[in-house]
Simulated assay, not measured.
Amino acid sequence: MLKVRMKKKLRDFDLDVSLSVCPGEVLVLLGENGSGKSTILNLLAGLLIPDEGIISLYDRTLYGGDEHAALPPEERNIGYVFQNYALFPHMSAFENVAFGLRRRKTNSADIQVLVKEILDELGIGHLINERATNLSGGQRQRIALARALVIQPDLLLLDEPLTALDRQAKEKIRQELREELVKSNKPSIIVTHSLRDAEIMGDQVIILAEGKIIWTGRPDELYTRSVISQVPCNTDEYVCFSAIAID
């Protein structure tokens, strides 16, 4: 289980959040640009360090304690899917997925087995030798997810994982991604601007504004409790958070 209570002074505001995510549960972070969503992911991954608080994952302290010690990113065993997927364009799908395993000095025979297994599980085994530049947006998204999952992480972080996909691809991949995250039986956190993402993929939703949690609840409560106002945005399902009404 992930348990978090942390503060971080940022340029425009002070981030102050507490949250918890159980194994197999998907937490969705919603909010405007600059509300602190991606900062939370970077703090959890160890790319940024809180000013105070505690981050624990399966009873292992990643940050905190009497001396506010922070484990480096490579020791946290966290899978991170970045918004642009961060694939190496000159590498094949196999080499991209194998990258984290090689950094951990996994032997070559095990790498061959583990990479093939995860690619097959995600339905992209036939792309194993394709260069990243030859892949579609949906295929790149799956390769990025495979790279995050293959290291058998204790926590999965996904920063706007569907942004690069068109509307039709999003509808198909949302449910598939949800199924893979639940199947992993690890805590997962997704950052998104989309109500539809939260509705389909989330178990719990947190709305952020200027580094503070202003609402938390289930995805189905986003509409029924009139929590946020939805406005059209390029015919997609994004939301405007300037008119939040909490009853």
Rank of each mutant, 00 (worst) to 15 (best):
K3V: 00
V4S: 12
M6C: 14
K8W: 09
K8N: 08
D12A: 14
D12F: 15
D14H: 02
L15C: 07
S18T: 11
S20A: 10
V21L: 12
C22T: 01
V26H: 03
L27A: 07
V28H: 02
L30E: 02
L30P: 05
K37E: 02
S38P: 01
T39W: 06
L43A: 09
A45P: 00
G46Q: 09
G46H: 07
P50I: 00
Y58V: 00
L62H: 15
Y63C: 03
D66H: 09
D66C: 01
R76Q: 04
G79R: 00
N84K: 12
N84G: 05
H90S: 12
M91W: 14
S92D: 10
F94W: 13
N96Q: 09
L101A: 04
R103S: 02
R104E: 01
R104S: 03
K105Y: 01
S108I: 11
A109T: 13
D110W: 03
I111E: 08
Q112W: 06
Q112S: 12
E117V: 01
L119T: 12
L119Y: 05
E121C: 04
G125F: 03
L127T: 07
L127Y: 05
I128E: 06
N129S: 14
N129V: 03
E130C: 09
E130T: 05
A132Q: 11
R140K: 15
Q141P: 09
I143K: 00
L145W: 04
A146M: 09
R147I: 14
R147L: 14
A148N: 02
V150N: 02
L157K: 00
L157W: 03
D159K: 01
E160I: 12
D166F: 13
Q168C: 09
A169K: 04
A169R: 08
K170Y: 01
R174H: 13
Q175A: 10
E176M: 11
E176N: 08
L181W: 03
L181A: 10
V182S: 06
K183M: 07
S184D: 01
S184Y: 01
T192M: 01
M201D: 06
D203L: 07
I207L: 12
L208T: 06
T216W: 02
G217S: 10
R218L: 13
P219C: 08
E221Q: 15
E221C: 04
E221G: 06
E221M: 08
Y223L: 09
T224H: 13
S226Q: 13
V227E: 02
V227F: 03
S229E: 14
Q230A: 11
N234A: 09
T235M: 05
V239H: 03
C240D: 13
A245N: 14
